[in-house]
């Protein structure tokens, strides 16, 4: 398969300064994913390729199979047909923990953060680090100081300025700051792919901007990002490529420069066919 075929868009549609991203092999590939729920076809043979340092947006109407596609890629669903490849190797995810162990992190719409715990505790939840020596191995004591320091670095790497105190409880943060914590959590710990499900849906204008900046920063940091969103201006602002889901199938892949938002929505709703 050529790069051109995998990209599903002409290389000319990609801005010149972003084309280098597509010279490498894709990081995550899905081929002909299919899943049914009783008589309802959730996904009907969807393929996609995701490159390191790329933001791939997935758009589609409600019930078009966006979430189903993402859940198949992150282990929440097990596809009935098709294959998933990570860095060229075929992988099977039975539970979300499998995908996480492989370096695919998901930021859920409902933000899986614990309000009562502080920022560092949330970043390290379920992967806490213990102190060195007998304090850690025998008494199982947490390395709170170390986790706070590393959490601060993780947050700084995303260019987040508004969060300073890692000991602050998450419930005292604003919606946008909580979103930052959730994204920082997903992007830390050597993950390769970050999946963001409607990250700006509940946010105001200013907070959305900072989340979009954070997504760009994730791309700069060399991660592969899948962005699911209903907000077309946000998608057109940050996405390199846009995969349009319609009725369980892929209606096509476009780029922000090849099609405008109106055309994208027309394809999404079936008013127009991608030629």
């Amino acid at each position: 398969m050529t790069t051109m075929e995998r990209l599903a868009v002409p290389l000319d549609d990609i801005p010149e300064d972003r084309r280098h991203v597509y010279e490498a092999e894709p990081l995550l590939s899905a081929r002909n994913l299919g899943i049914t729920f009783g008589r309802v076809v959730g996904l009907d043979g969807v393929s996609l390729d995701l490159y390191q340092g790329e933001v791939l947006a997935v758009i589609g109407d409600n019930g078009a199979g966006k979430s189903t596609l993402i859940k198949c890629l992150t282990g929440a669903y097990v596809p009935e047909t098709g294959e998933i490849y990570l860095a060229g190797n075929q992988v099977t995810f039975r539970v979300p923990q499998d995908a996480r162990a492989a370096g695919i992190e998901t930021v859920y719409q409902q933000l899986a953060v614990i309000p009562a715990l502080d920022i560092a505790s949330n970043l390290y939840l379920a992967r806490e680090e213990r102190r060195k020596g007998p304090l850690g191995s025998v008494l199982r004591m947490l390395d709170k100081k170390g986790m706070r320091e590393r959490a601060a670095t993780a947050v700084q790497n995303l260019g987040i300025q508004t969060i300073q105190n890692m000991g602050q409880a998450v419930e005292t943060l604003s919606g946008g700051q909580r979103q930052s914590v959730a994204v920082a959590r997903a992007a830390a710990f050597g993950s390769k792919v970050v999946v963001l499900d409607e990250p700006t849906a509940a946010l105001g204008v200013k907070e959305s901007t900072s989340v979009l900046n954070m997504i760009k920063q994730l791309r700069e940091n060399g991660l592969a990002v899948i962005l699911i969103s209903h907000n077309m201006p946000h998608v057109w602002e940050v996405a390199d490529r846009i995969l349009i889901q319609r009725l369980g199938s892929c209606a096509g892949v476009i780029t922000p420069s090849s099609h405008d938002m109106g055309e994208g929505v027309a394809i999404m709703t079936g008013a127009r066919k991608l030629t």
Binding site: Y108, A112, A126
Partner: peptide, 17 residues
């Protein structure tokens, strides 16, 4: 930490692993 997390928001705790 996990005791507090489960008590505060069990669903988020589960999603966090």
């Amino acid at each position: 930490r996990h005791v507090f997390a489960v008590g505060d928001d069990p669903e988020s705790a589960r999603l966090s692993g």
